[in-house]
Write a protein that binds this DNA or RNA. Sequence first.
DNA 1: GTCTATACAAAGATAGAC
DNA 2: GTCTATCTTTGTATAGAC
Lengths: 201, 201
Amino acid sequence: MKKTTSSDISTEEKIKIAARTLFTKKGYAATRTRDIAEEAGINLALLNYYFRSKEKLFELIMMEKITNFFGVVGPLLNDTSVTLEQKIVTISGNYIDMLNDNPELPLFILSEIRMNPDQFATRLPLSQVGASHLFKQLREKKPDLHPIQFLMNLLGLTVFPFIMKPVLVQSGLLTEKTFEEQMVQRKELIPKWLRAMLKKS
Amino acid sequence: MKKTTSSDISTEEKIKIAARTLFTKKGYAATRTRDIAEEAGINLALLNYYFRSKEKLFELIMMEKITNFFGVVGPLLNDTSVTLEQKIVTISGNYIDMLNDNPELPLFILSEIRMNPDQFATRLPLSQVGASHLFKQLREKKPDLHPIQFLMNLLGLTVFPFIMKPVLVQSGLLTEKTFEEQMVQRKELIPKWLRAMLKKS
DNA sequence: GTCTATACAAAGATAGAC
DNA sequence: GTCTATCTTTGTATAGAC
């Protein structure tokens, strides 16, 4: 029987929590194992005891985050029972909700991929997108626009504000609160804008 | 009289060129001064001789890049002789041209700002945007949409594809060549999409 | 499983010769 | 201005006691 209850967290879990915080905030290279240990309130040696190395620990966290990030689109991609319109609303809405809770996610994932493109390329569930039902729907609806162009728009309109957030808030152009309000608004605006893009021209 | 001619580059300049390449590709933390020295083909000690420290050198490059990045919008912001429509076309067009030459720029700037938000906040020319002529034009044209929302769209549609580029290319969803072609297309598409967003609803 | 102590490696910075 | 050699600091990993 595990001695861990909901109120006392195992050392292993403490390290993972601290690693999640620091890695996603500062990235791999700028994060010190000593800082993780301190943040977790444990001894530095235990990090290596449980996870063998900084890199192994990082990969664990990274895979978790990639799953989070692509989990929003994944299940919808090939669902033939959902209309294009519904997919758009669901994807952008779910992303905004998820990113409101994890605003640092996109910048973290994208910058780490940039540093090691080939290492993560194979593990990304993106390769299937090209043959997905969503792409088929897009081609039918608007043959003269490459589905990738549309995907860039969907993600750009949804994800980019969260990437800009630190800049906008720090520059005083926006407060945390008004940012969140605007993101809520966008859940209705984005589908409207995307719908216009798919109109026959 | 300087002995430097156009064909032989001064040591100082060699270091700056190497630093530009490595910092923008890997970020501050992951870049080693030894790598910069090697890339520049100079002795490690010379880096400190010319720039005192890694950090000083980095700040120099960073300021350069911020100037590049915001230079595209800056001059247009308060130009009262340019219509809103023209501003949109110019901004997105110029950005796409500039980013086609410097695709790593946005991810570099945004991830470094994320690591040190307050350090760069003051130096960003973004605070003036709120009082700009562009924002005034946007408020007049479409009072029910917050200008920031529009700015997010303009930048999201323009800049985000370049942020996604490594992911898209590495996952095999796109080749370098088709990416560039699509970006050229977007120079006409983006203004069209944005125009639709500013229509009376 | 957890901690102390320490080895080992890498990175940034500098002194001093040329 | 440039180089070699070296110092210091910081970061990662491990050995061994409890």
